[in-house]
């Protein structure tokens, strides 16, 4: 279980076996309505439960694949590898955590950036890989994000980011904190070129990722019932010594409080984003 999942109170925690979009075998159980689902069918439905519309967490590549047009795609900064600059060690070495995560996810780090087309229009899309150390943002995530933004500027195309992250990566200490400033500065540059940035917040988007790139969209869109916030629910509970209200820090709560523009079903995401971009001239 990743460190971030452990922060969540038990009632809102989903175990990793339930969470995985494509577990071994042919059948999966919806953690929300307990319906038994036929996997190939669930995948065809973009990992949304057909019975209760629960959005399973999905990996970065399937997400981008389900979002962009089929056809020519180019991966940005595919070869960037994480470096353990601090020789960080807690109960485990960071180096070992990295190689474990790389094996488990088949990714170099927690962000995948692809330039392709959406309804035949060029776009650059970034997506966080939550299974890679909780989708945490270290220097590779920051650098890939920036290169993605720069690619969008070169192509004069919109930039879209799907976030799913526990926040900054503690094992990279201050270097990871500074990625918040780095990614935000790149987005400022994108904005000064009058190019759109669409931030899509998925379950979960917390801490340093929420407090930088995820909240800076020209449109902030969330998937249903995603956990989104600055501080984790347990930290808040310990600080204020109150029981948190029902639905606190969920997409619907954020919409109510004015933090996001809309909540969109994953299966409608491509069409919605294309329609929004169309009206902005992209």
């Amino acid at each position: 279980m990743s460190w971030f999942v452990k922060l969540l109170p038990a009632k809102i925690r989903t175990s990793s076996t339930q969470r995985r979009a494509i577990p071994d075998g042919v059948w999966s159980k919806c953690p929300e309505c307990t319906a038994v689902l036929y996997l190939p069918e669930l995948e065809r439905n973009l990992s949304v439960c057909p019975k209760c519309l629960y959005h399973f967490r999905i990996n970065a590549r399937s997400r981008i694949e389900g979002f962009l047009d089929k056809g020519i795609q180019h991966e940005v900064a595919a070869d960037l590898q994480p470096v353990d600059r601090l020789k960080f060690k807690d109960t485990k070495k960071y180096k070992d955590r990295l190689s474990h995560a790389q094996k488990a996810t088949n990714e170099n780090d927690a962000l995948v950036v692809i330039s392709g087309t959406l309804k035949s229009k060029p776009v650059v899309v970034a997506a966080f890989e939550y299974d890679f150390i909780g989708g945490s943002m270290g220097t590779v995530v920051g650098e890939k994000f920036v290169q993605g933004v720069e690619t969008a500027i070169e192509l004069k195309a919109p930039f879209i980011c799907f976030s799913a992250s526990g926040g900054a990566r503690m094992q990279e200490a201050l270097l990871s904190l500074f990625q918040m400033a780095k990614t935000s500065a790149a987005l400022k540059k994108l904005a000064s070129e009058n190019l759109p940035y669409i931030s899509i917040l998925t379950d979960p988007t917390m801490g340093g990722v929420s407090a930088s790139l995820a909240m800076l969209g020209d449109f902030n869109i969330a998937e249903p019932k995603a956990l989104i916030g600055f501080a984790g629910p347990r930290v808040i509970e310990q600080t204020v010594r109150q029981i948190l209200p029902e639905g606190f820090q969920r997409s619907e709560f954020l919409l109510e409080k004015g933090a996001i523009d809309m909540i969109i079903d994953r299966r409608e995401m491509s069409a919605t984003v294309a329609r929004l971009l169309g009206k902005l001239g992209f």
């Binding site: 918040m180 400033a181 935000s184 500065a185 929420s210 407090a211 930088s212 790139l213 995820a214 909240m215 800076l216 989104i228 916030g229 600055f230 501080a231 984790g232 930290v235 808040i236 600080t239 204020v240 109150q242 948190l244 209200p245 606190f248 820090q249 954020l254 409080k257 004015g258 933090a259």
Partner: peptide, 18 residues
């Protein structure tokens, strides 16, 4: 890290300054 801080979007306030 408080309830009101989240309601008023602490994340956005920080992000906007960056």
């Amino acid at each position: 890290p408080g309830i009101g801080a989240e309601e008023r979007n602490q994340s956005e306030a920080i992000a906007r300054n960056l």
